[in-house]
Amino acid sequence: MPSLDASLYLLSVMALPFLLAVTLHEAGHAFAAYYFGDNTAKADGRLSLNPLVHIDPFGTIALPAIAIFFGIPFLIGYAKPVMINPRNFGNYKRDMVLTALAGPAGNLIVAIFCAYVLRFAIGAGVTEEDWLYNTMFYGIFLNCLFMIFNLLPIPPLDGAGVVEQFLPSEMAAAYRSVAPFGFFILMGIIILAKEIVLVPTLFMVELVVFLVGVPLGGF
């Protein structure tokens, strides 16, 4: 278990990136569903970039704090899921796929934004010792992590929502039935095979850093 000082500092640099990650992820789903004709998220007040409307007290606040203070290698957590009614979509399969992908796309946008901030911060003289450097670093890493994690084809994650649209109806129903066990499958991956998530996450971090032009000495 890390020291209290180390945990508090880590919490301070991860709090903003984590909040941006879960907010943009859920907002991505909400805006995509609304664009494709479903007003459910708007009626629920979720068509917003305000983090307060997406926060889940346990998943967004308590669970990440527990993960940090107990030294869990992944910052686990979640926001309130956005409810959608796909019967309002004009093209069911296409719109379901794009709405599912909009969440991870939101995380990619935040990762790129953090990379630009880090690039200009380093140019202005910010170093690895500074809070801003570490916050933007985690902004890139956490959002790439959330993007990859949510693209796993494990119900009820977004990746499963995409795969489901390409399956025959009976097979899709059987696939969805795995959802109640999804949490335990994900915990097994985190504990026993974290490389499944970590390797593509680090690849995406390096790709974002390269495309944005963050100085290599910054990582």
Rank of each mutant, 00 (worst) to 15 (best):
M136I: 03
V97G: 07
A102L: 00
Y116K: 00
A79T: 06
E129C: 03
R119D: 00
F89H: 11
G106D: 08
N107R: 13
F74P: 11
G71D: 15
G123Y: 05
I109L: 15
M83R: 12
G125H: 08
C114H: 13
P73I: 01
G123P: 00
F70T: 15
M136L: 04
V110W: 04
Y133C: 01
P81K: 02
F89S: 12
A115K: 15
G125I: 01
G123K: 04
E129L: 10
G71T: 14
I76C: 09
P86L: 07
D95K: 05
A100M: 13
A105W: 06
G77L: 02
L75Y: 12
M96C: 13
V97T: 07
A105E: 06
V82Y: 02
F74N: 03
G90V: 06
G123W: 01
L98E: 00
R87T: 12
D130R: 04
Y116D: 10
N91L: 05
M83D: 06
T127N: 07
K93L: 09
M83L: 10
N134Q: 15
N134E: 12
K93A: 14
I76R: 06
P81W: 00
I112F: 15
T99G: 08
N88V: 10
F70C: 14
V117F: 12
Y116V: 15
A124W: 05
F113Q: 05
C114E: 02
F120A: 01
R119F: 11
K80Q: 02
L108H: 00
T127P: 06
P104S: 10
F74D: 05
T99A: 03
G103R: 01
I72N: 13
D95E: 13
V97K: 05
W131P: 00
W131Y: 11
V82P: 10
F89M: 11
F120D: 10
T99I: 09
G125F: 07
F70I: 15
L132V: 07
A124E: 01
N107E: 12
L132K: 05
Y116A: 12
K80A: 08
A115C: 08
I72P: 02
G71P: 14
A121K: 00
P104G: 00
R87C: 04
E129N: 10
A79K: 05
P86W: 11
C114N: 15
T135E: 04
